[in-house]
Design a protein around this nucleic acid. Structure first.
Ligand SMILES: [Zn+2]
Ligand SMILES: [Zn+2]
Ligand SMILES: [Zn+2]
Ligand SMILES: [Zn+2]
Lengths: 132, 132
DNA sequence: AACGTTTTGTAATAATATAACATTAAAAGT
DNA sequence: ACTTTTAATGTTATATTATTACAAAACGTT
């Protein structure tokens, strides 16, 4: 089975919204914003989100229960994600650093476990907030 | 203000339970298990969990909304955490790898942001599940 | 004892996410 | 074209996770 290339109506509506947003969006904020487009129930949003995450169009920022569009068309979709998060203004940026991803993709410990996916979240203060 | 060394009754009760557990515990599972000890409300559990996370006695596994005791007394408490998670049996292990933590603690990108904390979660199949 | 601070108790509610089931649409095989 | 199968949708209800708000008790310091 190969990766789906056409998004369904609901998926496209949700993706459009997440892509337009300058900040991570929460599921119920998405729901509220797409109700005029016909998505009335949480499940419709969650299903779209699940699929979009699966195909790598968006990522979930786990520590925030929020979703951001993937700006990095070349990343290993939904398999290797890294974010920087400002703990003051909550700005979230996807980190695109090939050294980091190489390092983590090839990481092995002594557990005998082979990792096929990771998610990394860095926390700190962004430039703006640092200078306040 | 320095780090608190004495745990309160509620904090100790919750910590005991999490430490005894061989698997990550969810907040409401904790609540259920400590009700006989007098913690009746979610908030009592969440408050204890918050404090225990803050002082590094336990960690939150963000992707699972679950809590594990810190087995690594020398780690930079609650500032630098890494876990391996089996996607089949849900076994979670805290990774204790000094090369990894050094690499991540010193990581810098070109955003000008200085990170003081990170959380990393690796996903894959554990030895056991791989051989099924 | 008086004060500020932290912790606790309690009830109510908010926010996040899934189960279950019926239906419709799309994709694939013949 | 027709059947089969798979994926997506719509809808209601419910489960799970987490916080707000406020009052009371415990603790540490002066
Ligand atoms: Zn991405
Ligand atoms: Zn900031
Ligand atoms: Zn630890
Ligand atoms: Zn396993």
């Amino acid at each position: 089975m190969q990766k789906q290339e056409h998004l369904t109506k609901n998926q496209q509506i949700v993706l459009d919204l997440v892509e337009k947003s300058s900040e991570p969006l929460k599921a119920y904020s998405i729901l509220f914003n797409v109700q005029k487009k016909g998505l009335k129930a949480p499940l419709q949003v969650y299903r779209a989100l699940d699929k979009l995450v699966e195909i790598g169009k968006i990522h979930k920022v786990e520590s925030r229960n929020a979703f951001v569009a993937c700006k990095n068309s070349n990343c290993q979709v939904s398999k290797a994600t890294a974010f920087s998060i400002c703990e003051s203004c909550e700005k979230v940026t996807e980190i695109n650093n090939s050294k980091l991803s190489k390092y983590l993709n090839s990481f092995q410990d002594n557990s005998g476990m082979k990792y096929n996916k990771y998610n990394l979240e860095f926390f700190g203060l962004c430039k703006k907030c640092k200078n306040k």
